[in-house]
Computed example of a mutant assay.
Amino acid sequence: MTGSIGMAGEALSERAAELAANLAEVRERVAAAEAAAGRAAGSVQLVVVTKTFPADDVRLLAGCGATDVGESREPESGEKARACADLPLRWHQVGQVQTNKAAAVASWADVVHSVDRARLVTALERGHRRALERGERPAGHLLDVLLQIDLDDDDTRDPGRGGARPGEVAELAEVVAAAEGLRLAGVMAVAPAGVDPRGPFERLAQVAARLRADHPEATVISAGMSGDLEAAVAAGATHVRVGRAVLGARPAIV
């Protein structure tokens, strides 16, 4: 038994060292991208996407100074957030949200990056209100909402990815702004596959600027992942969502 405990401790120590090194490398990439774009150091927030990885990894990352983590799959996400409730972390829902899962997401997420339709806004508003009533969220808690923007061209659009078209943003923003307990925080997008991400991210920045003209508080631009974070930072991203470059290859989803 003692040997098994020792082996487990050794494995945990090795994983901690691996995550610390990877996290430091990604932070260096972000800092270099900020400098290259002429932006202030620390102006971009790193969200470490921990979906499919265990709560132990989240704890190790928190020990390395990570403050923001991203999840996407219920019920795994809620279970992990509750298991790590003692940690000073900000939890981000970065994947698509089914309307029937909105209440579960509202019970643990601080930020939802993938709002793309009015029905989802209504479901999140209802779920957040119930979470407050049950004491799952502290009094006065606000759920930050990002509008997911579809940047695909019409002939390459992937409906399964989700996202509101740029022309739909103004109306959807008004729905969020009117929802009780929700706060319109900005926009999010994923660069279309197989194209230079610089163009799509520049279009996202334009959408974000138009949104801020009507909603000055909506300052967040969530864009960029492990392979394209530099292009996102150059285009003005305030948040980048990085999983693989920090945690390694993602376990198979079963």
Rank of each mutant, 00 (worst) to 15 (best):
K80D: 05
A81L: 00
R82M: 12
R82E: 13
C84R: 02
A85C: 12
A85Y: 04
L87H: 01
P88G: 01
L89R: 00
L89V: 01
Q93E: 11
V94S: 09
G95D: 12
Q98Y: 11
N100D: 11
K101T: 09
K101R: 12
A104H: 07
V105L: 04
W108Y: 15
A109Y: 00
A109F: 00
V111I: 15
V111R: 00
V112Y: 05
H113L: 11
S114E: 08
V115K: 03
D116L: 04
A118C: 05
A118H: 06
R119H: 10
R119D: 14
L120C: 10
T122W: 04
A123D: 09
A123N: 08
R126P: 05
R126A: 15
R126W: 05
R130K: 14
R130L: 13
E133C: 02
R134Q: 14
E136R: 06
E136S: 07
E136A: 13
P138E: 08
A139R: 12
A139V: 13
G140I: 02
G140H: 02
G140C: 06
L142S: 14
L142M: 14
L143Q: 07
V145M: 01
Q148C: 07
Q148T: 05
D154W: 02
T156Q: 12
T156S: 10
D158I: 06
D158C: 01
G162K: 02
G162F: 03
A164R: 00
R165V: 08
P166L: 03
P166Q: 04
P166E: 05
G167A: 03
A170Y: 00
A170M: 01
A170T: 11
E171P: 01
L172T: 09
